[in-house]
Nucleic acid binder design. Structure first.
Lengths: 163, 163
DNA sequence: CCTATTGCGGATAAAATATATCCGTGATAG
DNA sequence: CTATCACGGATATATTTTATCCGCAATAGG
């Protein structure tokens, strides 16, 4: 039960893009360099986010990625599901219907397995919690909790690229 | 982000053992056959559950597995963590400290990354939810929601083995 | 136009993890 | 003493994750 590290990269990228001035975009290469992660692989994730309407992309020189929506309209859940897919993390293999004591057919099989239900319910509260957290919330926290020197440094790095 | 199918087996096994009459135990082979899953691999899971104090084991003929605690003292979280390990599913790779705009050293690095915090918080509510569900709760639901014919069949199958 | 830059999509490779099996050892009931 | 069973380690196989590459389409600028 491990969340792929691509999810971490994707959230960082989206957070960064969310904090950018209007009309500013970053290329995949820049996003990879900024975060110190491999570019070709990160590109796959950006592609996926773009496909799912979280990022806007522009081809060609001066192209790159922008956040497709307002930061308060993008949740962590949106990003996680985009990268990981929205299959539930607990998959019910219907083992209640296997083995020598299973019935050929039973009305109770139409209801979900009790164990699966409990697992899915827990996953639901997890998802609900992630859905509550928007990129705008992260931006808000950044103001007070991240070292101002780092913010300055990042801002400078980006301005230099876009000049 | 997928939970291993071994977890599903483990929960089914624990639930079954929880519903057994006092002093009744089942062998690894019986548990595997009952659920229609491969015995040697399931044995590994049972071993782990035993190691973590969820199951009691007895060697030798007439040996096997029993639930080590009362059903209301074993939660789904106990079983999940036993099998999957208790590492958080989101691992923070500290990418905020990587790349050209990171600082050598900053007091803000002593606090957890904001993104990781949000992910861990969601995982906490997930765990809390799983901790709420005890094997006794599942047993209670079984009474009203599982086909009585299947319960009868299972009971008979076990009695026959133990006769 | 032409060219350089950039994202897209498919194919592929390498590494890590999950799944599954086997066997020798020790414990124990009969 | 023997048959049954759990334990622990070693090993094999399958699947997933991680990572890279390349040809194509889009586009800004000369």
């Amino acid at each position: 039960m491990k969340i792929s590290s691509t999810v971490e990269w994707a959230i960082h990228c989206c957070s960064l893009l969310a904090g950018l001035p209007k009309e500013t975009s970053l290329t995949g290469k820049e996003l990879a360099e900024f975060h110190g992660v491999p570019h070709p692989y990160l590109a796959k994730a950006l592609q996926t986010l773009s496909h799912d309407g979280i990022l806007n992309t522009v081809s060609g020189p001066k192209g790159g990625y922008q956040l497709a929506k307002k930061p308060n309209k993008v949740s962590l859940l949106d990003i996680v599901l985009s990268i990981e897919g929205n299959d539930p993390c607990f998959e019910c293999d219907e083992i209640r219907r296997k083995g020598p004591t299973a019935l050929e057919k039973s009305p109770s099989y139409k209801r979900p397995c009790l164990i699966a239900s409990a697992m899915w319910n827990a996953e639901k509260v997890w998802r609900d919690e992630l859905a509550k957290v928007k990129l705008s919330d992260l931006l808000e926290q950044v103001k007070s909790k991240v070292d101002p020197r780092q913010l300055k440094k990042a801002q400078k790095w980006i301005e230099q690229r876009k000049a």
